[in-house]
Amino acid sequence: MQPFNEKQLLETISKGNEKAFEIFFLDYYPQVKGFITGLLQSPEEAEDISQDIFLMLWGNRSSLNTINNFKSYLFRV
């Protein structure tokens, strides 16, 4: 995957750009799912929760451009 500027990507997503969100999703989803799987020891539950997190992020996309450290924010969600 091509490297991207996270802050610019979040700004683009906050404006409703679905392609930017797809790039973002493809980069972060495996990390989130792996983290949650490690906590729950259930790949099925981890997948459901991970999907819910990204749905919530998309639903709140207009505020994503205000986040300074997204990775930290994401793993607190």
Score class of each variant (00 low, 15 high):
residue 47 E to V: 06
residue 1 M to V: 11
residue 16 G to Y: 03
residue 21 F to M: 07
residue 42 S to T: 07
residue 19 K to Q: 15
residue 45 E to H: 10
residue 10 L to C: 06
residue 26 L to N: 15
residue 61 R to D: 03
residue 77 V to L: 15
residue 7 K to I: 07
residue 38 G to T: 10
residue 60 N to L: 03
residue 33 K to R: 15
residue 8 Q to G: 02
residue 50 S to D: 07
residue 38 G to K: 13
residue 3 P to Q: 12
residue 19 K to M: 07
residue 50 S to A: 15
residue 74 L to H: 03
residue 28 Y to N: 12
residue 17 N to P: 01
residue 28 Y to T: 04
residue 48 D to L: 09
residue 12 T to H: 02
residue 64 L to W: 01
residue 27 D to P: 01
residue 9 L to P: 03
residue 65 N to H: 13
residue 32 V to Y: 06
residue 62 S to W: 00
residue 45 E to V: 09
residue 68 N to Y: 00
residue 5 N to H: 10
residue 59 G to H: 10
residue 20 A to L: 06
residue 49 I to G: 03
residue 13 I to N: 01
residue 28 Y to P: 01
residue 17 N to G: 02
residue 59 G to E: 13
residue 28 Y to C: 03
residue 55 L to A: 11
residue 49 I to T: 11
residue 77 V to T: 14
residue 25 F to N: 09
residue 46 A to G: 08
residue 19 K to H: 09
residue 61 R to T: 04
residue 32 V to M: 07
residue 18 E to M: 10
residue 15 K to S: 12
residue 54 F to H: 05
residue 73 Y to L: 02
residue 7 K to Q: 14
residue 16 G to D: 05
residue 52 D to C: 01
residue 11 E to P: 00
residue 74 L to R: 03
residue 45 E to N: 14
residue 18 E to V: 13
residue 6 E to N: 06
residue 17 N to H: 12
residue 20 A to I: 03
residue 33 K to D: 10
residue 4 F to R: 10
residue 62 S to P: 00
residue 39 L to V: 11
residue 40 L to C: 04
residue 52 D to Q: 10
residue 26 L to R: 15
residue 29 Y to S: 12
residue 62 S to N: 14
residue 23 I to P: 00
residue 11 E to M: 04
residue 9 L to E: 10
residue 57 L to M: 07
residue 40 L to R: 08
residue 63 S to E: 13
residue 22 E to M: 06
residue 13 I to A: 01
residue 6 E to S: 03
residue 38 G to H: 12
residue 51 Q to S: 08
residue 76 R to Q: 10
residue 75 F to C: 04
residue 1 M to G: 15
residue 52 D to I: 00
residue 72 S to V: 02
residue 55 L to M: 13
residue 58 W to E: 06
residue 45 E to L: 14
residue 43 P to N: 11
residue 66 T to N: 09
residue 2 Q to R: 12
residue 38 G to Y: 05
residue 19 K to F: 05
residue 12 T to F: 00
residue 38 G to N: 15
residue 41 Q to K: 15
residue 10 L to A: 05
residue 72 S to I: 02
residue 6 E to A: 01
